[in-house]
């Protein structure tokens, strides 16, 4: 069914909320090692697509494959364990925890001690805890958050909270990372830093699926772009092809009447 190069494949996926057809027979493939962008006007169904991939909503029709395995019907925590991680459009940082602890939660899937072991603080727990600390420090370093490790996440500026979210997802050691509006609410300087971070993440071998509004970010770093409008794919191709597509211009700006 799925192409050997593609890490993620959607085949004729549809979902509707009541009478609203949020996604209609959407198909696309994300190739391994790519930065793949999903763009479109407000309400086009971009976030809904991410929610379906990560198991928050099961698709009503169609199939989703990750590395050849069926994803549809899996719960979010199971999807994460398979190697897909995501961030959220509206930040979902654990405000009640420090930056370090936020990232440590991300290492949950990389460790196994359960309730009884943790209650008794067994040698296995201690060993895992050391591993978690070490990995956590590496990730904080990678994201440039090491100096803020001990701070409460709630007190950080917006841009740093976004970084914490990404750091946390990297801790799950994903092979596919879904970023929902990583540049939303960031200023020019921060957007530039974010592009750099995303490119760095790709360098480590992680495939990135990006949902975004911000054209500077998308056009600058994406390998392939798919454009959605009203839940349907209207175009796909390289950034240059998308920029010259009449359909895309019409979807974003409205069709000229003459």
């Amino acid at each position: 069914m799925s192409n050997s190069d593609s890490i993620l494949e959607l085949v004729n996926v549809s979902i509707n909320f009541g009478g609203l057809q949020a996604i209609n027979r959407l198909s696309f493939q994300v190739e391994s090692g790519q930065i793949f962008a999903l763009i479109g006007p407000n309400g086009a169904g971009k976030t809904t697509a991410i929610n379906m991939i990560t198991g928050i909503y099961p698709p009503a029709e169609g199939e989703i494959y990750f590395e050849g395995q069926v994803l549809s019907g899996k719960k979010p925590y199971q999807v994460t364990r398979m190697g897909i991680a995501r961030t959220f459009q509206n930040i979902q940082v654990f405000q009640n925890m420090t930056v370090r602890e936020n990232v440590m939660v991300g290492l949950h899937t990389r460790s196994r001690s359960e309730f009884v072991r943790c209650l008794l603080h067994t040698p296995m727990v201690r060993k895992e805890e050391r591993m978690i600390r070490r990995r956590c420090n590496e990730i904080l370093e990678f994201m440039g958050l090491a100096s803020k490790a001990g701070l409460l996440a709630a007190g950080l500026p917006y841009g740093d909270q976004k970084k914490v979210e990404i750091a946390r997802t990297l801790a799950t050691e994903p092979r596919l990372l879904l970023l929902d509006e990583p540049a939303a609410g960031l200023n020019l300087q921060e957007t530039h830093e974010m592009s750099h971070t995303i490119l760095m993440i790709r360098e480590t071998g992680v495939t990135v699926l990006l949902v975004a509004h911000n054209m500077d970010l998308v056009m600058g770093i994406s390998d392939t772009i798919t454009v959605l409008n009203y839940g349907e794919k209207i175009a796909d191709g390289s950034p240059a092809e998308i920029q010259n597509s009449d359909k895309v211009v019409a979807a974003y700006l409205g069709r000229e009447p003459w």
């Binding site: 979010p76 925590y77 994460t80």
Partner: peptide, 8 residues
Amino acid sequence: VAANSLGV
């Protein structure tokens, strides 16, 4: 929702 998406 975030905890769930991190594999908890």
